[in-house]
């Protein structure tokens, strides 16, 4: 085994069975090491062939946005981290079946994350229905909110009050700067519906925050 292959094996940090080792080593020699510039399709294919460094690059590239999406949708750090972990786990599990060029990996990943968020929001709703006698959600009140930053708490409350799909549309268009086509694909709606969701969502936010504008935008 060459020094380069040995170094790669060390980088991967994962022992492979001997019967595949020889072929895999040849593949490593024939294909260059993955880098931060390697595209997602290549990385997912390399991961499917046992390359752990590909998993590391994919994680570093996407986990931040997935976590941000889940955090803004769920407004719960622990739950958002669980969603991010589950999303990436699904990516690993589907790596062998991934068809290059069929879909954009990032779009697929956000679609999975968004659906996981919807699932959790639905569970929250059903559990809150079971607990009708409970007092109202303390997060609804800014005064009772434990957020250190009151301005941020105002914004979060306003966002949380939006219907899920409006919130998701704002997340995709404003925070992630995705185009209408990709946003429509992630949300599973038409492009026209995306524009409608954005208009309604942002109008609702504007109205909710109208009285707080001075506070929100103070330096």
């Amino acid at each position: 085994m060459s020094a380069a292959t040995t170094a790669l094996a060390g980088l991967h940090g994962h022992a492979r069975p001997d019967h595949r080792r020889k072929g895999a080593a040849m593949a490593e020699i024939a294909t260059p090491a993955v880098t931060a510039e390697t595209d997602d399709d290549t990385l997912i294919a390399r991961f499917a062939n046992g390359d752990q460094s590909a998993a590391r690059i994919l994680t570093e590239r996407h986990i931040g946005r997935v976590l941000a999406l889940a955090t803004r949708m769920l407004r719960d750090t622990t739950e958002a981290e669980d969603v991010a972990q589950e999303t990436m786990l699904r990516a690993w599990r589907n790596a062998e079946k991934w068809e290059t060029g069929k879909a954009k990996f990032s779009t697929w990943l956000h679609k999975v994350a968004l659906n996981l968020c919807y699932d959790r929001l639905r569970k929250r709703k059903s559990s809150s229905l079971d607990e009708v006698a409970e007092p109202t959600d303390d997060r609804a009140s800014v005064q009772q909110n434990m957020e250190a930053d009151e301005r941020l708490a105002l914004l979060k409350d306003a966002m949380e009050s939006l219907p899920e799909r409006q919130r998701a549309a704002i997340q995709m268009r404003h925070f992630e700067e995705r185009g209408n086509d990709e946003t429509a694909e992630i949300l599973g709606v038409t492009v026209e519906a995306v524009e409608s969701l954005l208009s309604r969502g942002r109008r609702a936010l504007r109205d909710k925050l109208a009285g707080q504008r001075a506070l929100l935008l103070e330096e």
Partner: peptide
């Protein structure tokens, strides 16, 4: 600008 107050968390 108001929306931009909500930055995504670092993993």
């Amino acid at each position: 600008d108001m929306l931009d107050l909500w930055e995504g968390p670092e993993p």
